[in-house]
Design a protein around this nucleic acid. Sequence first.
DNA 1: AAACTAATTTAGACTAGACTAAAAAAAAGT
DNA 2: ACTTTTTTTTAGTCTAGTCTAAATTAGTTT
Lengths: 217, 217
Amino acid sequence: MRSRSEEDYLKAIYSLSIKGSSTSTNEIAKALTMKASSVTDMLKKLADKKWVNYIKYKGVTLTKEGKQIALQIIRKHRLWETFLVTNLNFKWDEVHDIAEQLEHIDSIELINRLDKHLGFPKFDPHGDPIPDKNGKIQDLRKSQPLSDLKKGDKGIIIGVVDGTSIFLRYLDNEGLNLGTEIYVEEIFDFDFSYKLKINNKFLTVSERVSKNLLIQF
Amino acid sequence: MRSRSEEDYLKAIYSLSIKGSSTSTNEIAKALTMKASSVTDMLKKLADKKWVNYIKYKGVTLTKEGKQIALQIIRKHRLWETFLVTNLNFKWDEVHDIAEQLEHIDSIELINRLDKHLGFPKFDPHGDPIPDKNGKIQDLRKSQPLSDLKKGDKGIIIGVVDGTSIFLRYLDNEGLNLGTEIYVEEIFDFDFSYKLKINNKFLTVSERVSKNLLIQF
DNA sequence: AAACTAATTTAGACTAGACTAAAAAAAAGT
DNA sequence: ACTTTTTTTTAGTCTAGTCTAAATTAGTTT
């Protein structure tokens, strides 16, 4: 059996390993708001259980089994988020903390039935892909941050980089929902803000926002 | 904040206090499959938090606050069981262990929305009443075990005393569902088994079963 | 009421998972 | 290549929640 703590570590290592396959003690500590020494301790335990490849001072990667576990936790997290938004009418900025708890509920049968109940969704409310029961993520869509677009480009909002509540509420407020089509009317060189055209209305967003919005291409 | 362990204790004390307002260290230990010494430790902690009235060697009762907490956990447990059966098509004998986990999810908003989503049910799949958001149980139905009925009596099955899987599966098998109307055709003195008439068919159940089936009166 | 038995508590030990402070290794700067 | 800084690990401590074994209290029997 796995403890909640172990699951949190595996998930964090998975997320941090996305770009560049190895991650470091300090990065994990930062992600979990813990001290580096605590992380070292846990990495040894996870290595004993063959869920990570860990070499002192050299960073850590997930084993095949560790990755599978991480993917199943992410699957649970995203399915529960979907449930909360589509069935219980939560807003997309309200669901993270609750899903953070629900993702640790231990029942494969439960999660598969939830998946079926929701109609086997492929994406969660934030546009993130949901792994299937085998841990496969089949996201054929390619995306880039809005900040990579040039004047005159257009695209559809399909996700966010940073899913914190404040940012999501801002997006709601400005009408920047998933699926919204945007057109880059202008980029202002002095602060790299973007003037967008959305449904024939204009809206200017900061550089910060442009880096957090994912656009399909 | 409350730990999972603390919640388990409060729930156990609540259940054991139903008949006779005080319960004992040993009873709690048995209910939670723990050692009496562990229970003593925890009772002190719960008393410090003012959730129980505890006097050494004299047994324990819940305070008003402790009782409210216990009722909220039971509310969560029963609402989740209802969700699992009515929305995810679990059988009534499959939901207990999962609900045992879900009952500890900490979000009042979540549980109130779940309640609404389910249409504010008053009873769970086992016929047990669901406390409302204020902890009120308004179960106006009176029930007695089948074993209290006499020859010629009739009534409706509205609950079970012991909700273990094996017993529930037996009931399913024999067609003894909640809401089923039964008529006591005969009681056999030699083993106190009950011959019932259900939808014009006859079925004999053991004394054990007769003590576990609750009949409305 | 003394003696026995059962229930309960105390005392001390263990584990998981966190921490702090100090030591060691790696990386970066000169 | 040597020194300094940063990162990581080690060593030792703490807390929550469990345990065993021994001691104490309560309840029961004679």
